[in-house]
């Protein structure tokens, strides 16, 4: 469990990035952190694995205050996949990249080999095993970064903007993949601007603005509340917008997903034709 209590964070240049954030994320939860550029989303999640330590307030991971443990200890439990894969990748081959942290954590050679193959296959990277990460496209590098974190099997997985540079088919794979992580009782936290992706995955949404949380609730609650979204510079999904325009003929306004939209319309048509 991750617990954040009145967290404040000021960067060395004086920028106050977090101005009193409190939240709880239970084991096995799937949470999306959304909101304006510069709202403090990335700063917040960097506190979960101890990359940043609070200026004021506290962050507890499984009851342990992050101030009392090293990043290396926390990293075993909380895996963080950076927004920009180039901040993370540095090895000469994809294989070495994925094996790197495993070696650091002291896994034996056989386990490393097994885990690397597993992670590469999972993310469709097996054919690039011997290729330099820098020969790959942005979307592929992003998946290498993800594979290298998943390989050590952390309990909490944080994905910072995982859908950037990914095409729709890969996003669908990512979605299935997150669902699979959840069946393994892992906690998944994503930072994202991708409203349509969130409408499909339907996680709990924490909405941020200017270093504070402005809303916290189910995807359905948050994405169908245009006033709250706008405060945080988020636009409702296309389906929700479509239903907003259909309000005057009696359709509900709390629809976010395309298949749910189809069902709702078919049902309403069935009733009006009776």
């Amino acid at each position: 469990m991750i617990e954040v209590k009145d967290l404040r964070f000021v960067y060395p240049n004086g920028v106050e990035a977090l101005r009193g954030v409190s939240l709880k994320i239970e084991d096995g939860e799937f949470v999306a952190i959304m909101g304006q550029n510069g709202a403090g989303k990335t700063t917040l999640v960097k506190h979960f694995n101890g990359l940043l330590k609070p200026t004021k307030g506290d962050v507890y991971v499984d009851g342990v205050n992050t101030k009392d443990v090293s990043v290396a200890t926390l990293a075993r439990k909380v895996g963080y996949v950076f927004q920009n894969p180039d901040h993370q990748l540095f090895c000469e081959s994809v294989e070495q990249e994925v094996a790197f942290a495993l070696k650091n954590f002291g896994f034996d050679q056989e386990t490393i080999e097994k885990r690397v193959s597993w992670a590469l296959q999972l993310l469709g990277l097996t054919q690039y095993r011997q290729v330099s990460p820098f020969m790959l496209s942005g979307g592929e590098r992003k998946r290498v970064a993800l594979a290298s974190v998943l390989a050590w099997d952390p309990k909490v997985v944080i994905l910072d903007e995982p859908t950037i540079g990914q095409d729709y088919a890969q996003k669908e794979k990512l979605r299935q993949f997150i669902m699979q992580l959840r069946t393994q009782k892992k906690t998944v936290v994503i930072v994202t601007h991708d409203v349509e992706f969130v409408a499909e995955c339907q996680p709990r949404i924490i909405l941020m603005k200017n270093g504070k949380i402005v809303a916290d609730g189910s995807a359905k609650e948050i994405l169908t509340n245009p006033e709250v979204l706008l405060q945080a510079s988020v636009i409702p999904p296309q389906i929700t917008q479509t239903f907003h325009y259909l309000k005057d003929i009696g359709l509900p306004t709390n629809v976010i997903d395309v298949y749910e939209a189809r069902e709702t319309i078919l049902e309403f048509l069935g009733e009006t034709k009776k």
Binding site: E196, A199, R262, I265, L266
Partner: peptide
């Protein structure tokens, strides 16, 4: 089918059209 993320408004239209609406 190629994996292009078509707008959801377009997708909903397609689905309903296929349903014969």
């Amino acid at each position: 089918l190629l994996g292009v993320g078509i707008p959801k408004a377009t997708r909903l239209y397609q689905l309903l059209k296929n349903d014969g609406i």
